[in-house]
């Protein structure tokens, strides 16, 4: 701010040049992430974009956040996304239906939002400079180092930090509960003693699976009644109905009944999730 007279667009410093180059690379990786038709490549380009953002944090003298970004985003979030792509049987090669039909409307919305935001931001902060030298020279360890981060995080922000730990615990429990539901099925079919209460809960689930029965013809008639692109609706409830019935068929198999012929195509094997 005080050095505003001595700086300008035409005399960029080395940090600005590095920021611009890394920023162009990050933006290009992000664009490739949202436009590529190969799903696994999208996750790998997301690594490039998030790593570029970590470099930007380093250039903005926020070292601790840069390494947290590398650890959490590049280390765990992208791995989680890759596991999700594998568990949902994402196609390896090019998938032609990666983009939905409203991509031009989405492009128009994104371009309008980008134009508005860039105009507002450039107009608002036209004469604002970040003094990176003073930020690093203020403390001997730097404004974003681990020591300074620890001090302000555990001195001033300790209560939100603890609340955040509770939220992480809730998210952990929620993820486990959501992903454990199918793994209890063979245990419930075995009829062991402690899970008998859960096996008593299972017929309710099977009842909802049977409840999809009257819904299926309704969707079929709806599909035949509307326009031509909806004609794919009569095929669409067929895997849905088999998906609804297959766990019941698996339980019926465990109870001694013969499996239905739709059983050899389970919707997804009850694999353990990455957590």
């Amino acid at each position: 701010m005080t050095l505003a007279a001595g700086q300008g667009f035409l005399s960029p410093t080395g940090v600005e040049i590095a920021f611009l180059l890394v920023g162009v690379a990050t933006l290009g990786a992000a664009v490739v992430t949202v436009t590529t038709r190969q799903l696994v490549h999208a996750a790998l380009w997301l690594v490039v974009a998030l790593g570029g953002l970590a470099v930007e944090y380093l250039l903005l003298t926020a070292e601790f956040i840069a390494w947290v970004q590398v650890l959490i985003y590049v280390g765990s979030v992208v791995v989680l996304l890759l596991f999700g792509l594998m568990l949902t049987k994402a196609p390896i090669g090019r998938s032609p239906d990666a983009d939905s039909g409203n991509r031009w409307a989405a492009l128009a919305v994104a371009l309008a939002a980008a134009a508005t935001l860039v105009w507002v931001v450039v107009d608002a902060f036209r004469s604002t400079w970040v003094d990176l030298d003073k930020a690093t020279a203020g403390a001997e360890a730097g404004a974003g180092s681990t020591r300074v981060t620890g001090e302000f995080l555990f001195r001033h922000w300790v209560l939100p930090f603890e609340a955040l730990s509770v939220l992480l615990l809730a998210a952990l429990v929620g993820a486990i509960v959501l992903s454990r539901r199918d793994r209890e099925d063979p245990k419930a079919g075995g009829g062991t003693g402690p899970t008998s209460g859960r096996s008593g809960r299972r017929p309710g689930v099977r009842g909802t699976g049977a409840g999809t029965g009257p819904r299926t013809p309704r969707l079929g008639t709806a599909g035949t009644g509307v326009t031509a692109p909806r004609t794919s609706a009569p095929e669409a409830p067929a895997p849905r109905a088999s998906a609804g019935r297959t766990p019941a068929g698996a339980r019926g198999d465990a109870a001694g009944q013969a499996p239905p012929p739709a059983a050899p195509q389970p919707p997804a094997p009850p694999r353990p999730t990455p957590r």
């Binding site: 990050t26 933006l27 974009a49 903005l60 970040v130």
Partner: peptide
Amino acid sequence: MHLVYPAVLAALL
């Protein structure tokens, strides 16, 4: 560093 650079990059991202 000019503040416009990170702000514009964030808006575009």
